[in-house]
Amino acid sequence: MSVFVDDDTRVVVQGITGGEGKFHAEQMIEYGTNVVGGAVPGKGGEEVAGVPVYDTVDEAVEAEDADASVIFVPPAFAADAIFEALDTSLDLVVAITEGVPTQDMAKVNKRLSEVDTRLLGPNCPGIITPGESKLGILPGNIFTDGNVGLVSRSGTLTYQVVDNLTNRGIGQTTAVGIGGDPIIGTSFIDALEAFEADEETDAVVMCGEIGGEDEEQAAKYIGEHMDTPVAGFIAGRTAPPGKRMGHAGAIVSGSGTGTAESKINALNDAGVPVGDTPEEVADHVEDFL
């Protein structure tokens, strides 16, 4: 078992003819993902990474019976690519692109409320169910099959924590990157809900960071609805207010909302231990198992 993606997921790569799209399509195929096609306007009929390219996402989905897409298109065109994907029968859309204007995402967010499709990201590393399928840019070789679910706003922090886990022989059911932007599709709560329902997931790691109040809401959800134990990590304890720390969403407001302290307190109140270091997070997970 796993969440959101598995062996059967059939993937279209939007932007497969671009440098990054092609490289990561090949990497995904090498990992074992069923990449069944690409979608790039004006490139229909070509073949890239051994799969057929279509002019529209809809054509690709219909022809290849796809149920997920991964988006590698530049920020200026990313919202349009997401809208196009949401207008098909896809179940899952993963937007890797970093730097999508926030007001574009507000419009996407509105559309998401009207459709059943799940969006991951944007500005996320993607999702991986080790040994089965990877959608995105995560380095497959650091993950191992196991029973810990992972959800994170940050790519490289995910890799770091997975490394700490894997070094102790602790594998993962699925690792979900939800993205570092202020407005994203799938939230912590959505991912936690899926892990709670997944029988194979025995523990969950949640990596949050400063900015917004998603972690506080997730803490409340964990306290009220989860039996699966959760360990937390919050990045940005030393971040000064009013400064954007790399991610567009990682900012402590002048009024003091979105601080690491507030998130850590909320998680602790919900019974979630929060590690001071990634190594301590792995300690907590080991205690759970």
Partner: peptide, 11 residues
């Protein structure tokens, strides 16, 4: 590299 990991390094 990566906002979350750099923030973690600061922390």
């Amino acid at each position: 590299n990566g906002a979350g990991l750099v923030m973690t390094t600061l922390d």
